[in-house]
Design a protein around this nucleic acid. Structure first.
Length: 340
DNA sequence: CGATGTCAAGGAATC
DNA sequence: GATTCCTTGACATCG
């Protein structure tokens, strides 16, 4: 059976670890499966057509097939998996978790069988520290829904909900204060899963560390965001270590890794008012994700990381294809035993 | 059928 | 105060 074979390989890999050589335990990717339009990540029909979580879970089962086939053990679920489930004007969609209990239990059991680490990352509209109470309230409801969903899968506490701090609104201290106050008022079901990621514009590592100190919330280190937003110039590995240290004993920390899109690239574009496509050179904006992960950069980052362990969520446009290619790059560099 | 418009939701920068 | 960008794809409708 595939699962048993994977477990055996897992045990073997642990034994093969050279003493002192540090590695992530898992490589994961987010939501969409590149090049496989048949593998949908959620039921995306409009509300008029009554989309449902049960349909999304059938899709997810097919994605799990793919993950099992490729030995991938970390995956970010779509936050739209239960369509309109917190939409204020569509209460008829608010009970999908209850309506899907059995399917949720089954897919959760399968995730555990496959030793899959799952996570979620609510959309940009979820802003806990917003000065607008209605935005904060909607965010709290959304977090609670995400937690209920992961709980319905009966997943352990490595299954996290990732968020950003939010805005600054011209007063950083007040913005941090709102985050802390509202975090502390969150239900335990949310607090035990919520983790905070440094972002690319407003809240750098040095600015979320104080929030961790006040709340205990674990920090997800994002390498690209740190490269783009690092006002006091903290060295990447220093930032990494500080974030890893915020995780409780017994939970495996995770980080986000991506490669920045290079300055110029050729893309196929549809001309204005015309149906024909042609190759055009466009400038990339700073902080954009590249299609792939640079294997050399990744290896160098690991080599300098020291005696620490963490899982790695890859954020690349080519999704799981970037993960598979990175594996090949690492294998070519003699690090295959070392990487999941 | 291909092209175009739309989608629940926010924040920041710019004017 | 209003507009645009961010970023994303696929559904839904229009011509």
């Amino acid at each position: 059976m595939v699962v048993e074979a994977d477990r055996t390989r897992a045990a073997q890999s642990e034994l093969d670890q050279p003493v002192g050589l540090i590695s992530p335990r898992r490589l994961g990717f987010a939501v969409k499966i590149a090049g496989r339009p048949d593998l949908k990540d959620h039921d995306s029909r409009r509300w008029q057509n009554e989309p449902h979580l049960r349909v999304s879970l059938e899709y997810l089962d097919r994605i799990f097939d793919y993950l099992a086939e490729h030995g991938i053990r970390m995956y970010r679920l779509s936050s739209d998996i239960a369509p309109y489930s917190t939409h204020p004007d569509l209460p008829q969609f608010h009970h999908q978790i209850e309506e899907s209990r059995e399917a949720l239990a089954a897919i959760g059991a399968r995730a555990r069988d496959l030793d899959l680490r799952l996570s979620m990352h609510p959309a940009q509209y979820i802003v806990l520290n917003s000065p607008h109470e209605h935005v904060a309230d909607a965010s709290i409801r959304d977090f609670a829904h995400h937690a209920d969903f992961l709980d319905a899968l009966d997943l352990d506490l490595d299954a996290k909900i990732v968020t950003h701090t939010g805005g600054v609104y011209g007063d950083r201290d007040a913005a941090a204060e709102r985050f802390v106050r509202r975090y502390e008022a969150l239900p335990e079901s949310v607090r035990r899963r919520l983790v905070l990621e440094n972002d690319e514009v407003s809240w750098a590592v040095e600015e979320i560390l104080p929030i961790h100190e006040r709340t205990g919330i674990p920090l997800v280190f994002d390498t690209l965001h740190h490269a783009v937003n690092n006002p006091s110039g903290i060295a990447p590995h220093e930032a990494l270590h500080r974030c890893l240290a915020t995780w409780p004993v017994g939970q495996m920390p995770k980080i986000h890794v991506s490669t920045q899109r290079s300055a110029n690239r050729e893309v196929s574009r549809r001309g204005p008012g015309s149906a024909t496509r042609s190759l055009v050179s466009v400038a990339a904006k700073p902080g954009q994700h590249d299609d792939w992960i640079d294997g050399g950069d990744f290896l160098a980052f690991l080599a300098g990381a020291g005696e620490v362990r963490f899982d790695v969520m890859l954020e690349a446009k080519q999704k799981q294809l970037a993960l598979l290619r990175l594996r090949e790059d690492l294998r070519a560099a003699g690090q295959a035993h070392d990487i999941w």
